[in-house]
Structure formats: C-alpha cells, structure tokens
C-alpha cells in the first residue's frame, strides 16, 4: 500500500509539476467528476470477460480498479473491441484504454501508447495434436481460423499462404476449430495459453514458435500529458510490486516471461518494494 501511494504520488507530482495545461484535461475531469472510464475487453478470458451478473471482470478490469482506487474515484468499465478501441479513446468516450492492445508504431501515431508496456504476447496457432505443423510455412493452403480485425491475419495469409477464415469473436472461432472447420486457430499466444490449460482443449497444442512477440500498451489520448504521466507511473508501480504476475496467478494462468522479467527489473526501482 505504501509503495502504491508513493508511486502514484510521484507520478501525480510529476504530472502537476510540468504544468497541466490551462484547459481542462482528462485527469482533471476525472478528479472533478469522480469517475474514471476505462476501456477493456469483454470477450478475452481471463484478461477481460463477463461474469454471470453481467459485470466485466478479469486481469485488466482489476488493473483498472487499482487505478481508480489510487485516484480515489469511481470506476466505469466500457467494453471495447479491436476495431473500435482507438476511436473510443480519440473521441473521449474512454479516459484510458487497457485492452490487450499490441504496441505498434502505426498505432502510436493514432493514440499515445505509454512506456513501459504492461504485458506481452505474440502470435501463435492452436491446433489438434494430431496435425503436424512444425513451421509457419507448413500452414500453406491450410484453412486457419482467426478473429476479424487481428493484425496478423494478413501476414498469416500473405506470407505463409494460409487461408484465413475470420469470425466475429473468439467463441465462434474456437467452436469452428473444435468442429474441425479449420486446421488451426491463429491468435494471441496469451489467450491460446490460457485455453490450453482447460481440460476441454487437452487434445490441442501450440506447435509453432511464437512470432511477433510484441508488448501490450496502456493508451491515452494524444495531448493528455498529465494522464499519460500518471498512467506510466501506475504501470511502473504494477511491475515494481509484481501485481500483474499475481493477477495472472489469481486468474489461473502461467505468468508470461515478459511480466516476470519486468518484475525482476523494476523490483529495485523503489527501495520499499524489496521484501
């Protein structure tokens, strides 16, 4: 708790010190209205999904709650999908986006993706163990399920020659894979990993080498410098305390190398974090 306040206070101080612009910025609005609006995924178990009361829960909603608690405001979650999340941020519908978004150079032009990144995943496929895919080139000509809007769909079909069969959501794509409609399902390895830990997918594996391992970033709107600095502070704080690793364990998945590495690196950042 102490470190959290410290980190947040550092971030807050930094943001105010550099001088908030005269016009009302997002952080000021949040503090005044008492509500922080965060965009998260709602169909990406365990990072963001629906519980039976209709609430969005998961790792990212927990992180968002941590942000709201630190600021002492109410949290409002908005479900976003890959194809609308950046527009929502740009339009001001959400203040912060923590929605499994891969940090790419093109996206940095559209929104302000913060340093450091908070998570990481790459692209892999999930296929029945009986299929013998060894390299990505083995996918040539194979029907491969995907989710519409994912950036690696094009690469998988253009470079590796797979026939992408794109569905609107993950549950449809998984169902199509199970029915045998595709030879494999190409998606984020973090999502596939958590599926493979479930009994019902015990006949499947991730046979290929993960490619395009790229970090996920928290994003705010361009020009919202105070909010950006505050959120950067929050991400540093999460890595320092190992909070993301703990959340991964809480939701029953193996911590990815990235979060472990970041925790190791940041552990000494604030002396109090050492236990």
């Amino acid at each position: 708790m102490k470190t959290r306040i410290l980190a947040a206070a550092t971030a807050l101080a930094a943001s105010f010190a550099v001088g908030a612009p005269a016009t009302a910025d997002t952080l000021q609005n949040v503090m005044q209205s008492g509500t922080l609006t965060v965009g998260v995924k709602a169909d990406y178990k365990p990072y963001g999904y629906l519980d039976s009361d209709g609430n969005i829960v998961g790792i990212e909603p927990d992180l968002a709650q941590d942000v709201a608690d630190t600021l002492g405001v109410e949290l409002e979650l908005v479900a976003v999908v890959a194809s609308n999340r950046m527009q929502f941020l740009d339009q001001g519908k959400i203040d912060v986006m923590i929605a499994t978004m891969t940090d790419t150079a093109e996206r940095r032009e559209v929104v302000n993706i913060l340093n450091p990144d908070y998570y990481s995943s790459g692209t892999n496929i999930m296929a029945r163990k009986s299929t013998d895919f060894e390299t990505w080139d083995d996918l040539e000509g194979a029907p491969v399920c995907g989710v519409q809007g994912a950036f690696y769909n094009r690469k998988t079909s253009q470079e590796f020659g797979a026939e992408i069969v794109g569905f609107t959501g993950t549950s449809e794509a998984l169902n199509a894979l199970r029915q045998g409609r595709c030879a494999a399902f190409v998606y984020d390895d973090s999502f596939l990993n958590s599926r493979l830990q479930e009994d019902q997918w015990s006949d499947y594996n991730m046979p290929l080498e993960t490619i395009d391992d790229a970090p996920w970033g928290v994003a705010v709107k361009h020009g919202e410098d105070a909010m950006a600095r505050f959120m950067s502070g929050m991400v540093v704080h999460w890595h320092t305390t190992g909070q993301i690793v703990e959340l991964e364990k809480k939701y029953g998945i193996d911590p990815v190398p990235f979060t472990r590495k970041m925790h190791e690196r940041y552990r000494g950042y604030i002396p109090e974090a050492k236990k």
Binding site: Q148, G149, F151, N153, R154, G166
Partner: peptide, 9 residues
C-alpha cells in the same frame, strides 16, 4: 467481409 478485413489492416 473483405472490406472489413481491409479496413482492419
């Protein structure tokens, strides 16, 4: 479908 793929890319 194709238009959707293209605007995603």
């Amino acid at each position: 479908y194709v238009a959707n793929q293209i605007w995603s890319d």
